[in-house]
Amino acid sequence: MPDLSRLLREKNIIFVTLALCLVFYLISPRFLSLDNMSAISRQIVPIGLIALGQFFVVVSGNIDLSMGMGSVLFAIVLGVFFGMTGGVALGIVAVIACSLALGFFNGVLVTKLRLPAFIVTLSMLFCAQGLSGLIIPRGQQIFLMGDFFRFIGAEKFMGLYWSFLFLVALFVLAWVVYNHTRWGAAVIAVGNSEENARLAGVNVDRVKIGVFMFSALCSGFAGIMLSSRMGFVQPGLDGNGLLLDGIAAIIIGGTLILGGRGTIGGAFWGLLFIGVINNALNLLNVEDVWHQVFKGAVILAALGANWVLWQSRQVEAH
């Protein structure tokens, strides 16, 4: 029954998400209101950017733990430049430059020196957090005001937030790159087997460095989106929560954590799932303390479910 298992694996999250929406709607009709839907669409933007960057990293068989705290650092970079110049252009250039530099650094350490990605990015997580707090002292914040931040954070186009449209456009772009370009195929090949990819003529190191630069760039964008929505930046922003949500989204979306498998569509539905859960927890007045429990449990459950599905797939293949 390849069709059934395929349907289950790739589409199950759609049914689960829709069913959840229905349940939440029955509990609180406000859940499906237009206002709340657009609120969800705005809340998931930073998470979605993290998920998208992490998706490519995980498919290539690595992990980037520095993405969450990286976003916070980049948001602060933006804030500092905004505070100095009163404009955003220079700040955004700085964010892009810094994020690409961080990604390049991560990638070089992982490829050229063959260090494990989780150790490199774990130490980067700490460096980013430390730097954030050194740039802006603890307890202080920089307020971000002006047309640009209102545009990113609050303006809509035909009822949809611009930031959400930007995210969707990026997902579409990523889908094309992932499914229809040599680079996308190379990322999958590297995730399946670096040795085979190398023999097939793929420049493995360059692909991996590219993947890390992309994920860091995504966290830079996430930082911009996050700070625009909040209207201020400070070092105490919850970068690790962002990282966990992003990882949860792609695991729920069926990405194989060992690398080499995963779909952009799945990642997007996983993202919607996380967005719905996060929103519902707030809307239904679930106490804050429960949120992390849910997140941990959801990731564990998704890991287990993925395992079962891949296991059944392997049995079929034999």
């Binding site: 350490l109 020196l113 260090l115 150790i119 490199v120 774990l122 130490s123 980067m124 997580l125 700490f126 460096c127 957090q129 430390g130 730097l131 954030s132 707090g133 050194l134 603890r138 070092p235």
Partner: peptide, 18 residues
């Protein structure tokens, strides 16, 4: 500064592994 401590911790880990 606690944030400087974290930066130093991160650099120590990276340095040792390197």
């Amino acid at each position: 500064n606690p944030y400087l401590q974290n930066l130093i911790k991160g650099l120590i880990l990276l340095g040792v592994v390197l």
